[in-house]
Nucleic acid binder design. Structure first.
Length: 593
RNA sequence: GGUCCCGUAGCUCAGCUGGAUAGAGCACAGGUUUUCUAAACCUGCGGUCCUUGGUUCGAUUCCAAGCGGGAUCACCA
């Protein structure tokens, strides 16, 4: 791999050592800002103390040294303390020729790092359909998995389904009481929406009962605990845990409906999993670990019989890990499943949890406990925390009906895409299936890009009234650019791929080559930061630049054969980079749109 | 109250480990098509980078305090 930074680094280091006697300097290059002449810039301020030179003088001397001693350096200029270095056309052309036919541009070789990473994401409850918050989770998880793979890691995508607990019993109970044998098939409802309907119904009926109890003089707290429906739901949970056949059968049936619904949404979103976990299988895990931890004095028994850990020394609080009746809490099974996974996959080098930032504290506690239990891999556990998706009126709340359903949102995106495609009328030769497929590609591209271009850590705002844009800094813009390049390449109709480019690149062409050169670094960075937004924003810059190039420079109409071939090759490389970058975001790019 | 996260243009967001005159998109005003796809391109408008101190040759970036917003601190999951 041709590496400009490395080439310059060595010469600068040599210069500093030989001429100024500075050993082990910290040398970092940055991209030269576009208003200045040059490719890479060295800031000379850090060296002025030791060299006792003015920034300008040092820059001048270093520049001269570079030109003299490094054949790849063609020129330099100094502005204040900034040494702007230009590399030769030959160098950039050499890089271009080396990568121009690479279909894996930006990616490292598969499984080349030797690292196996388990990445858990999605992890839904089986009592309601997926909403926009889940969409962010799913897209983020899938994209980070893609990025980690592109960094040469082996990734196991895991999904742990929260298929048991009081919330499931609520839907079950409501269906039993008010369902009259209705099914998704008989009602025409998608399975997850069907079950979600009963979850809401439970809440509604339960509220009525609570109000009645309050009217009879109970306090709000009492009423919430003692409503008949709530008691029945709890009873149902006990029966489930005891393996009561009737309850378990109902549970299987209703979860089955939900899974059918989820499968559709997952397929539409284009996300998938290598490994499914179910909490109904894992919820008892962890108890024996607590016993062991008690013996090792990591935990202690409280007077009432519950077991806890004191993390006040770590700036955290006391945390209960086992109830006084001996049953486990949420974190108990998390401790158990983590240990289980490292047993199941001994080659695992990292375990990543894609979970919203409302659980930051939970994961801090979890990892700390695992560390205290003596698991060396505890420090390789990572909480991929992301911000909430908020609506203009604030947080989404299922009970208040202020959620944006994933399926409905996707449908809306497809409708917008379809309307625009029809209006523009560029693909009238498509058959119905191709037409549908294209609009799905574009609609989902818009949605995915909209979500992934934002730094995962930050909360993001979604305004349903202002629908997601298809122009500007968007997925469709990037998809469009790709389609346009492919169109030009199709029209070229001669073998432009053969042979190496031999041209004097124009400023904008060189700029494009330089951008492509950055791709690999961006992928690496987004991998270590678990941040798809870096890829998203990078490829947007490339795309924008390409569009300017497209407008400024004729390609097929270019008369100089060498330049024409180079521009075609460059276009092809840009299209490949766009496709590869978008693939990291889970976004498909069309050949035509 | 403790802890954590956030605060950049009217709106939505970039700004990597401190570096040059803080950038995009949307919106708004205007322009570009007999020429490779106008879902594009170009021009203009738009800023107390929340405030105040500190460190530094240099701070939107690091530190401290304050203000504002959010999350969390369950024998819920």
């Amino acid at each position: 791999m041709i590496n400009a930074h490395k080439i310059l680094f060595d010469t600068v280091q040599q210069a500093l050592a030989q001429v100024y006697n500075i050993s082990n300097p910290v040398i970092t290059f940055q991209k030269t800002r576009k208003e200045f002449e040059g490719d890479l810039t060295l800031v000379t301020f850090p060296f002025i103390k030791e060299t006792k030179k003015s920034p300008e003088q040092l820059g001048q001397e270093l520049g001269e040294y570079l030109v003299k001693n490094n054949t790849n350096v063609s020129a330099f200029n100094v502005v204040k303390g900034f040494l702007n270095i230009s590399l030769t056309n030959q160098f950039w052309l050499g890089y271009f020729n080396a990568v121009k036919d690479s279909v894996t541009i930006g990616y490292k070789k598969e499984n080349s790092s030797g690292k196996t990473i388990m990445l858990e994401y999605s992890s839904p409850n089986t009592n309601k359909p997926l909403h926009l918050g889940h969409v962010r989770n799913n897209l983020l998880g899938f994209s980070v998995a893609q990025i980690l793979k592109a960094n040469g890691h082996k990734v196991i995508k895991a999904n742990i389904i929260n298929d048991r607990g009081i919330h499931i019993c609520k839907s079950m109970l409501a269906w039993q009481k008010f369902g009259n044998g209705e099914t998704p098939a008989s009602s025409g409802l998608k399975g997850d929406f069907f079950v979600g309907k009963y979850y809401v119904l439970f809440d509604k009926e339960n509220k009525k009962q609570i109000e009645e109890l309050i009217a009879v003089g109970k306090t709000k707290e009492e009423a919430e605990k003692k409503s008949l429906l709530m008691l029945e739901a709890q009873d149902m949970l006990r029966k489930w845990e005891a393996g009561d056949k009737e309850v378990v059968d109902l549970w299987k049936t209703m979860n089955g409906w939900v899974y059918e619904g989820f499968a559709v949404t997952y397929k539409t979103l284009g996300v998938d999993f290598d490994k499914m976990y179910y909490e109904s299988n894992t919820y008892l895990l962890g108890k024996e670990i607590i016993e062991e931890g008690l013996k090792k004095n990591v935990f202690y028994k409280k007077e009432n019989g519950s077991v806890a850990i004191d993390l006040s020394g770590e700036g955290l609080d006391e945390k209960i890990v086992l109830r006084s009746d001996g049953t486990s809490v949420y974190i108990t099974q998390d401790i158990g499943t983590a240990i289980e996974r490292f047993k199941e996959f001994p080659q695992l080098s990292q375990l990543i949890y894609t979970v919203g930032n409302e659980q930051d504290y939970h994961f801090k506690v979890l990892f700390k406990i695992l560390e205290k239990l003596g698991y060396a891999w505890a420090k390789e556990c990572y909480h991929l925390s992301y911000g909430m998706v908020e609506l203009p009126e604030g947080k989404m709340k299922s009970r208040e009906g202020t959620v944006v359903d994933a399926d409905e949102l996707i449908d809306e995106m497809l409708a917008t895409a379809t309307a625009t495609t029809k209006e523009l009328g560029k693909v009238d030769d498509f058959n119905e299936e191709e037409f549908k497929e294209l609009n799905k590609t574009i609609g989902l591209g818009a949605l995915k890009y909209f979500i992934l271009k934002v730094d995962p850590k930050k909360k993001m705002l979604f305004d349903p009234k202002e629908s997601i844009d298809f122009n500007g800094h968007t997925g469709p813009f990037i998809q469009y650019t790709h389609a346009r390049i492919r169109s030009v390449l199709r029209k070229a109709a001669f073998d432009f791929e053969r042979g190496e480019a031999k041209v004097e690149m124009s400023a904008i062409e060189k700029e494009l080559v330089k951008f492509i050169y950055d791709f690999e670094g961006v992928v690496a960075e987004s991998g270590t930061a678990f941040n798809p937004a870096l890829v998203a924003n990078y490829i947007y810059e490339v795309t924008k630049l390409y569009n300017r190039f497209y407008h400024e420079c004729p390609i097929l109409k270019e008369e100089d054969e060498n330049i024409k071939i180079f521009r075609l090759q460059l276009s092809k490389l840009c299209a490949q980079a766009i496709a590869n970058a978008m693939n990291l975001l889970g976004i498909v790019v069309p050949e035509k749109m």
